[in-house]
């Protein structure tokens, strides 16, 4: 009984962490699916979210979850602008070029944050940070539950946007066939900007709900989350948005179970090994239907 409770507890923790990974991975997968860009700056977008929550908290003493309302629209604009300046000139360039351009963007963002905020770790303390909720034998942390709720809202919102709205249909059309979408009158360049803005919004949301739970440093936290986002999207299939949700939850569970039952010091390695295995054995992702080899 005791063993069973620990396993359920671990699964619950894994799913809650995995939800954040899913949110980050969905953005990366959306950007790849529509724009064919592997975004090396994605983890740094998460860090931008973390630091925007910090700045808003320090300047306006606003609760981090309320700062979502300010940070998300601003992040969307930032995403639009960055796409216009850096990625839209490269729309017909080989995939290698956009990868390197986002890598350059990542270095610029990391080091700018480093110059502004310094290298010491930062976190945001909320008064209810240690509050927990008991569900029978398992204990869940309140901030992780809030994070889970935010993730659900954001992902359902994205789902409704992509399936119900005219703009969402244009996004999916662009992802399926850019030339075809242009032929029926869709401005695919505008769609690219929109999608990059959305990717930024998802990453910033993830950063804001994470900052009460961990310490962030500009140049280290970014690459860590970029790697996690790659792992998540490859598990789910690159460009497969709903697969990324499964990939995120899976990574969270694998990390927590691996850390408690195998070895905590290799926590980051489990995801990477899974990533390599999927890339080599099933490059279409665990949930993909297509059999096209990459």
């Amino acid at each position: 009984m005791d063993i069973l409770t620990t396993i359920i507890q671990n699964l619950a923790n894994g799913l809650l962490i995995g939800g954040v990974y899913a949110l980050i991975g969905v953005g990366l997968s959306l950007i790849f699916g529509v724009m064919r860009v592997i975004n090396f700056a994605h983890g740094d977008f998460v860090v931008i979210g973390m630091y925007s929550a910090l700045v808003i908290y320090r300047q306006l003493s606003l609760d981090p979850y309320l700062s979502l309302l300010i940070a998300l629209p601003l992040g969307f604009l930032l995403g639009l602008v960055l796409e216009r300046i850096i990625l839209s000139p490269l729309v017909d360039a080989p995939e290698d070029s956009t990868l390197l351009a986002t890598l350059g963007l990542a270095l610029i963002l990391q080091n700018t944050l480093l110059l502004i905020f310094g290298a010491e770790p930062n976190s945001l303390y909320v008064s209810y940070a240690t509050a927990t909720i008991k569900l029978g034998p398992i204990t869940l942390s309140l901030i992780q539950l809030i994070a889970g709720a935010v993730i659900l809202v954001v992902i359902i919102g994205l789902y409704l946007f992509l399936t119900r709205s005219e703009a969402g249909k244009a996004v999916r059309a662009t992802a399926q066939n850019r030339l075809g979408a242009e032929l029926i009158g869709i401005n695919t360049l505008a769609i690219h900007s929109l999608v990059f803005g959305f990717g930024m919004v998802l990453a910033i949301a993830a950063g804001i709900i994470l900052i009460p739970q961990l310490f962030a440093t500009p140049a280290i936290t970014g690459p860590v989350f970029t790697l996690k986002a790659f792992v998540v999207t490859v598990l789910g299939g690159l460009g497969n948005i709903w697969g990324a949700i499964g990939g995120g939850l899976l990574l969270g569970v694998v990390e927590v179970l691996g850390a408690s039952y195998i070895s905590n010091s290799y926590r980051d390695a489990y995801g990477l090994v899974a990533f390599l295995l999927v890339l080599l054995l099933r490059p279409e992702g665990l949930f993909g239907k297509t059999v096209k080899r990459v």
Partner: peptide, 19 residues
């Protein structure tokens, strides 16, 4: 000037080169 942020110059130059 940049101290630890010395990779900034790599970021700027790679963007200039790629674009």
């Amino acid at each position: 000037i940049f101290a630890q942020a010395n990779l900034l110059i790599y970021g700027v130059l790679i963007l200039v080169v790629i674009l």
